[in-house]
Computed example of a mutant assay.
Amino acid sequence: MKASCISMLAAGMLALFTGLPAQAAYPERPVKVVVAFTAGGTTDKLTRSTSEKLGQALKQSFIVENRPGAGGNIGTEYVVRSDPDGYTLIVDSVGPIAVNPSLMKLDYDPLTDLVPIVQIATVPNVLVVPPNLPVKTFEDFLKYAKSKKGLNYGSTGVGTSSHLSSHLLMQHIDAQDATHVPYKGADALNDLMSGRLDFMFATAPSVMGQIRAGKLRALAVSTQQRLASLPDVPTVAEKGFKDFDSGSWFGFFAPKDTPADVIATINKGVNDALPTLKADMLNEGAIAVGGTPEDFGKFTHIEYEKWKKIVEKLDTKAQ
Protein backbone atom coordinates (compact mmCIF):
# COMPACT_ATOMS: atom_id res chain seq x y z
CA MET A 1 0.00 0.00 0.00
CA LYS A 2 2.81 2.38 0.97
CA ALA A 3 4.73 1.62 -2.23
CA SER A 4 1.60 2.15 -4.26
CA CYS A 5 1.02 5.60 -2.75
CA ILE A 6 4.60 6.62 -3.44
CA SER A 7 4.27 5.48 -7.04
CA MET A 8 1.07 7.46 -7.47
CA LEU A 9 2.67 10.56 -5.93
CA ALA A 10 5.69 10.25 -8.22
CA ALA A 11 3.48 9.84 -11.25
CA GLY A 12 1.48 12.93 -10.26
CA MET A 13 4.64 15.03 -9.83
CA LEU A 14 5.97 13.85 -13.17
CA ALA A 15 2.71 14.84 -14.84
CA LEU A 16 2.87 18.25 -13.14
CA PHE A 17 6.41 18.99 -14.30
CA THR A 18 5.93 17.66 -17.80
CA GLY A 19 2.88 19.89 -18.10
CA LEU A 20 4.96 23.05 -17.52
CA PRO A 21 5.93 24.97 -20.65
CA ALA A 22 9.60 24.66 -21.61
CA GLN A 23 11.69 27.80 -21.00
CA ALA A 24 12.37 29.53 -24.30
CA ALA A 25 16.00 29.77 -25.33
CA TYR A 26 17.52 33.27 -25.36
CA PRO A 27 16.92 35.33 -27.40
CA GLU A 28 13.22 34.75 -28.03
CA ARG A 29 12.59 38.31 -29.25
CA PRO A 30 14.63 41.13 -30.84
CA VAL A 31 17.58 42.49 -28.84
CA LYS A 32 18.35 46.21 -28.68
CA VAL A 33 22.05 47.09 -28.99
CA VAL A 34 22.74 50.68 -27.96
CA VAL A 35 25.52 52.80 -29.43
CA ALA A 36 26.32 55.86 -27.33
CA PHE A 37 27.59 57.82 -30.35
CA THR A 38 26.19 58.96 -33.68
CA ALA A 39 25.70 56.76 -36.72
CA GLY A 40 28.66 56.39 -39.05
CA GLY A 41 31.41 56.41 -36.43
CA THR A 42 33.67 53.51 -35.47
CA THR A 43 31.50 52.33 -32.57
CA ASP A 44 28.48 52.32 -34.85
CA LYS A 45 30.25 50.48 -37.68
CA LEU A 46 31.70 47.77 -35.44
CA THR A 47 28.37 47.35 -33.64
CA ARG A 48 26.39 46.94 -36.84
CA SER A 49 28.74 44.43 -38.45
CA THR A 50 29.00 42.32 -35.30
CA SER A 51 25.27 42.54 -34.51
CA GLU A 52 24.43 41.34 -38.01
CA LYS A 53 26.55 38.23 -37.48
CA LEU A 54 25.02 37.68 -34.03
CA GLY A 55 21.54 37.87 -35.50
CA GLN A 56 22.39 35.31 -38.15
CA ALA A 57 23.89 32.92 -35.60
CA LEU A 58 21.16 33.27 -32.97
CA LYS A 59 18.22 33.47 -35.40
CA GLN A 60 17.01 36.76 -33.95
CA SER A 61 17.21 40.46 -34.75
CA PHE A 62 19.86 42.56 -33.00
CA ILE A 63 18.65 46.11 -33.58
CA VAL A 64 21.20 48.92 -33.26
CA GLU A 65 19.94 52.13 -31.64
CA ASN A 66 22.07 55.30 -31.48
CA ARG A 67 21.78 57.36 -28.26
CA PRO A 68 24.59 59.93 -28.53
CA GLY A 69 25.55 62.76 -26.22
CA ALA A 70 27.67 63.78 -23.22
CA GLY A 71 30.74 61.87 -24.39
CA GLY A 72 28.82 58.60 -24.48
CA ASN A 73 27.27 59.00 -21.03
CA ILE A 74 23.66 59.35 -22.21
CA GLY A 75 23.57 56.01 -24.00
CA THR A 76 25.64 54.31 -21.32
CA GLU A 77 23.38 55.43 -18.47
CA TYR A 78 20.32 54.39 -20.47
CA VAL A 79 21.64 50.83 -20.54
CA VAL A 80 22.71 50.94 -16.88
CA ARG A 81 19.07 51.76 -15.98
CA SER A 82 17.60 49.12 -18.32
CA ASP A 83 16.15 45.78 -17.24
CA PRO A 84 18.89 43.15 -16.86
CA ASP A 85 17.07 40.63 -19.03
CA GLY A 86 19.51 40.47 -21.94
CA TYR A 87 17.31 42.44 -24.33
CA THR A 88 19.15 45.75 -23.94
CA LEU A 89 22.90 45.65 -24.51
CA ILE A 90 25.51 48.27 -25.39
CA VAL A 91 28.68 48.30 -27.42
CA ASP A 92 30.76 50.84 -25.53
CA SER A 93 34.26 52.22 -25.76
CA VAL A 94 37.19 53.47 -23.72
CA GLY A 95 35.73 56.94 -23.07
CA PRO A 96 32.44 56.11 -21.34
CA ILE A 97 33.88 53.09 -19.52
CA ALA A 98 37.47 53.93 -18.55
CA VAL A 99 37.91 57.71 -18.88
CA ASN A 100 34.68 59.45 -17.89
CA PRO A 101 34.55 58.12 -14.31
CA SER A 102 37.74 60.12 -13.60
CA LEU A 103 36.85 63.07 -15.80
CA MET A 104 33.23 63.71 -14.84
CA LYS A 105 30.76 63.34 -11.98
CA LEU A 106 28.54 60.40 -12.89
CA ASP A 107 25.41 59.06 -11.19
CA TYR A 108 26.54 55.51 -11.90
CA ASP A 109 29.74 53.51 -12.11
CA PRO A 110 30.20 51.84 -15.52
CA LEU A 111 32.78 49.47 -14.07
CA THR A 112 30.28 47.97 -11.62
CA ASP A 113 26.87 48.82 -13.06
CA LEU A 114 27.63 47.14 -16.37
CA VAL A 115 28.75 43.56 -16.97
CA PRO A 116 31.57 43.13 -19.53
CA ILE A 117 30.70 40.47 -22.10
CA VAL A 118 33.40 40.47 -24.77
CA GLN A 119 35.86 42.86 -26.40
CA ILE A 120 35.29 43.30 -30.11
CA ALA A 121 38.39 45.19 -31.18
CA THR A 122 41.19 47.62 -30.44
CA VAL A 123 41.53 50.63 -32.72
CA PRO A 124 44.38 53.13 -33.09
CA ASN A 125 43.66 56.82 -33.43
CA VAL A 126 45.10 58.55 -36.48
CA LEU A 127 46.21 62.19 -36.49
CA VAL A 128 44.52 63.62 -39.58
CA VAL A 129 44.46 67.09 -41.13
CA PRO A 130 42.59 68.58 -44.10
CA PRO A 131 44.60 68.63 -47.35
CA ASN A 132 44.67 72.44 -47.39
CA LEU A 133 46.62 72.60 -44.13
CA PRO A 134 50.23 73.46 -45.08
CA VAL A 135 51.78 70.33 -43.54
CA LYS A 136 52.91 67.10 -45.17
CA THR A 137 54.52 65.23 -42.27
CA PHE A 138 54.24 64.89 -38.50
CA GLU A 139 57.34 67.06 -38.13
CA ASP A 140 55.66 69.74 -40.26
CA PHE A 141 52.60 69.54 -38.05
CA LEU A 142 54.60 70.02 -34.85
CA LYS A 143 56.23 73.17 -36.26
CA TYR A 144 52.86 74.45 -37.45
CA ALA A 145 51.14 73.75 -34.12
CA LYS A 146 53.89 75.48 -32.13
CA SER A 147 53.89 78.58 -34.34
CA LYS A 148 50.16 79.07 -34.97
CA LYS A 149 47.94 80.55 -32.29
CA GLY A 150 44.36 79.49 -31.86
CA LEU A 151 44.40 75.97 -33.27
CA ASN A 152 41.04 74.21 -33.24
CA TYR A 153 40.81 70.45 -32.91
CA GLY A 154 37.77 68.25 -32.91
CA SER A 155 36.84 65.05 -31.14
CA THR A 156 33.96 62.61 -30.90
CA GLY A 157 33.18 63.89 -27.41
CA VAL A 158 34.66 64.97 -24.10
CA GLY A 159 36.63 62.16 -22.49
CA THR A 160 36.98 60.03 -25.60
CA SER A 161 40.44 58.83 -26.62
CA SER A 162 40.01 61.15 -29.63
CA HIS A 163 39.82 64.13 -27.25
CA LEU A 164 42.58 63.03 -24.88
CA SER A 165 45.00 62.05 -27.65
CA SER A 166 44.93 65.62 -28.96
CA HIS A 167 45.02 67.13 -25.50
CA LEU A 168 47.98 64.95 -24.57
CA LEU A 169 49.95 65.93 -27.68
CA MET A 170 49.20 69.64 -27.22
CA GLN A 171 50.44 69.38 -23.63
CA HIS A 172 53.63 67.70 -24.81
CA ILE A 173 54.46 70.47 -27.27
CA ASP A 174 53.20 73.27 -25.01
CA ALA A 175 50.44 74.40 -27.38
CA GLN A 176 48.21 75.28 -24.45
CA ASP A 177 45.94 77.66 -26.37
CA ALA A 178 44.63 74.97 -28.75
CA THR A 179 40.83 74.82 -28.49
CA HIS A 180 38.94 71.56 -28.16
CA VAL A 181 35.65 71.40 -30.07
CA PRO A 182 33.66 68.32 -28.95
CA TYR A 183 31.04 66.72 -31.18
CA LYS A 184 28.44 64.06 -30.45
CA GLY A 185 30.22 61.64 -32.75
CA ALA A 186 31.47 61.38 -36.31
CA ASP A 187 30.05 64.79 -37.31
CA ALA A 188 33.43 66.32 -36.46
CA LEU A 189 34.86 64.91 -39.69
CA ASN A 190 32.67 67.15 -41.84
CA ASP A 191 34.06 70.26 -40.17
CA LEU A 192 37.58 68.89 -40.39
CA MET A 193 37.35 68.23 -44.13
CA SER A 194 35.84 71.67 -44.70
CA GLY A 195 38.75 73.33 -42.88
CA ARG A 196 36.78 74.59 -39.87
CA LEU A 197 39.03 72.41 -37.71
CA ASP A 198 42.82 72.22 -38.00
CA PHE A 199 43.33 68.62 -36.92
CA MET A 200 41.86 65.65 -35.12
CA PHE A 201 42.82 62.30 -33.71
CA ALA A 202 40.15 60.02 -35.19
CA THR A 203 39.66 56.29 -34.86
CA ALA A 204 41.16 54.62 -37.90
CA PRO A 205 37.97 53.00 -39.29
CA SER A 206 36.12 56.33 -39.21
CA VAL A 207 38.66 58.03 -41.51
CA MET A 208 40.17 55.24 -43.59
CA GLY A 209 37.93 56.01 -46.57
CA GLN A 210 38.71 59.74 -46.47
CA ILE A 211 42.45 59.07 -46.18
CA ARG A 212 42.42 56.75 -49.19
CA ALA A 213 40.32 59.24 -51.17
CA GLY A 214 42.72 62.10 -50.40
CA LYS A 215 40.13 64.04 -48.42
CA LEU A 216 42.23 63.82 -45.25
CA ARG A 217 45.98 63.49 -44.71
CA ALA A 218 47.23 60.97 -42.13
CA LEU A 219 50.30 62.14 -40.22
CA ALA A 220 50.73 59.74 -37.29
CA VAL A 221 49.19 56.86 -35.36
CA SER A 222 48.51 57.11 -31.62
CA THR A 223 49.45 53.56 -30.60
CA GLN A 224 52.89 52.05 -30.03
CA GLN A 225 52.75 49.92 -33.19
CA ARG A 226 52.15 51.07 -36.77
CA LEU A 227 48.86 50.16 -38.34
CA ALA A 228 48.95 47.40 -40.96
CA SER A 229 46.43 49.22 -43.16
CA LEU A 230 48.56 52.43 -43.02
CA PRO A 231 52.09 50.99 -42.99
CA ASP A 232 53.81 54.21 -44.10
CA VAL A 233 52.28 56.34 -41.37
CA PRO A 234 54.61 56.60 -38.34
CA THR A 235 53.57 56.38 -34.71
CA VAL A 236 53.72 59.41 -32.44
CA ALA A 237 55.94 57.33 -30.13
CA GLU A 238 58.62 56.73 -32.76
CA LYS A 239 58.75 60.46 -33.47
CA GLY A 240 60.13 61.31 -30.05
CA PHE A 241 57.17 60.80 -27.73
CA LYS A 242 58.06 57.31 -26.53
CA ASP A 243 55.30 56.94 -23.92
CA PHE A 244 52.51 58.18 -26.18
CA ASP A 245 49.94 55.38 -26.38
CA SER A 246 46.33 56.45 -26.81
CA GLY A 247 44.24 53.97 -28.72
CA SER A 248 40.60 53.07 -28.38
CA TRP A 249 38.69 49.82 -27.89
CA PHE A 250 35.14 48.54 -28.15
CA GLY A 251 33.10 45.76 -26.62
CA PHE A 252 29.72 44.44 -25.53
CA PHE A 253 28.31 45.19 -22.07
CA ALA A 254 25.01 44.38 -20.33
CA PRO A 255 23.25 45.84 -17.27
CA LYS A 256 24.38 44.48 -13.91
CA ASP A 257 22.56 41.26 -12.86
CA THR A 258 22.00 40.10 -16.44
CA PRO A 259 21.75 36.27 -16.29
CA ALA A 260 25.02 34.38 -16.74
CA ASP A 261 23.59 32.23 -19.54
CA VAL A 262 22.79 35.36 -21.55
CA ILE A 263 26.32 36.66 -21.06
CA ALA A 264 27.68 33.28 -22.18
CA THR A 265 25.45 33.22 -25.27
CA ILE A 266 26.51 36.69 -26.46
CA ASN A 267 30.16 36.00 -25.67
CA LYS A 268 30.15 32.81 -27.72
CA GLY A 269 28.27 34.47 -30.57
CA VAL A 270 30.76 37.34 -30.84
CA ASN A 271 33.80 35.07 -30.54
CA ASP A 272 32.39 32.86 -33.29
CA ALA A 273 31.72 35.90 -35.50
CA LEU A 274 35.07 37.64 -35.16
CA PRO A 275 37.08 35.30 -37.45
CA THR A 276 34.67 36.12 -40.29
CA LEU A 277 35.04 39.85 -39.60
CA LYS A 278 38.78 39.94 -38.92
CA ALA A 279 40.01 40.67 -42.45
CA ASP A 280 37.51 43.47 -43.07
CA MET A 281 38.26 44.98 -39.66
CA LEU A 282 42.00 44.96 -40.31
CA ASN A 283 41.52 46.58 -43.70
CA GLU A 284 39.59 49.38 -42.01
CA GLY A 285 42.12 49.82 -39.19
CA ALA A 286 40.60 47.73 -36.38
CA ILE A 287 42.16 44.69 -34.74
CA ALA A 288 39.75 41.91 -33.69
CA VAL A 289 40.18 40.71 -30.09
CA GLY A 290 37.50 38.44 -28.54
CA GLY A 291 38.09 36.46 -25.34
CA THR A 292 36.16 35.70 -22.15
CA PRO A 293 34.04 38.06 -20.03
CA GLU A 294 36.70 37.73 -17.33
CA ASP A 295 39.43 38.79 -19.78
CA PHE A 296 37.43 41.85 -20.78
CA GLY A 297 36.60 42.72 -17.18
CA LYS A 298 40.26 42.72 -16.16
CA PHE A 299 41.15 44.76 -19.23
CA THR A 300 38.57 47.48 -18.50
CA HIS A 301 39.90 47.90 -14.94
CA ILE A 302 43.48 48.18 -16.21
CA GLU A 303 42.35 50.80 -18.72
CA TYR A 304 40.51 52.72 -16.01
CA GLU A 305 43.66 52.91 -13.87
CA LYS A 306 45.75 53.95 -16.88
CA TRP A 307 43.43 56.78 -17.92
CA LYS A 308 42.84 57.91 -14.35
CA LYS A 309 46.56 58.65 -14.03
CA ILE A 310 46.59 60.49 -17.37
CA VAL A 311 43.56 62.61 -16.46
CA GLU A 312 45.03 63.49 -13.07
CA LYS A 313 48.44 64.28 -14.53
CA LEU A 314 47.06 66.52 -17.26
CA ASP A 315 44.47 68.10 -14.99
CA THR A 316 42.02 67.59 -17.85
CA LYS A 317 38.64 69.17 -17.32
CA ALA A 318 35.34 68.16 -18.90
CA GLN A 319 34.86 71.00 -21.32
Rank of each mutant, 00 (worst) to 15 (best):
L169I: 05
L169G: 00
L169S: 00
M170P: 00
M170H: 04
Q171I: 07
Q171S: 14
I173H: 04
D177R: 10
T179R: 15
T179E: 11
H180V: 06
P182Q: 06
P182D: 03
K184L: 14
A186Q: 11
A188N: 09
A188V: 12
N190R: 14
D191E: 12
M193G: 07
M193H: 04
L197H: 03
D198Y: 10
F199P: 00
F201A: 07
A202D: 12
A202R: 03
A204G: 04
P205Y: 05
S206L: 05
V207R: 00
V207T: 03
Q210T: 12
I211D: 01
R212S: 13
R212I: 06
R212C: 06
R212D: 10
R212T: 09
A213R: 13
G214V: 12
K215M: 13
K215W: 11
L216G: 02
R217T: 10
R217Q: 12
L219R: 00
L219K: 01
A220L: 09
V221M: 03
S222T: 10
S222C: 09
S222G: 12
Q224F: 08
Q224E: 12
R226P: 11
L227N: 03
L227A: 04
A228W: 08
S229D: 00
S229K: 01
S229E: 02
L230R: 04
L230C: 09
L230K: 03
P231D: 08
P231F: 09
D232F: 12
V236G: 01
A237L: 08
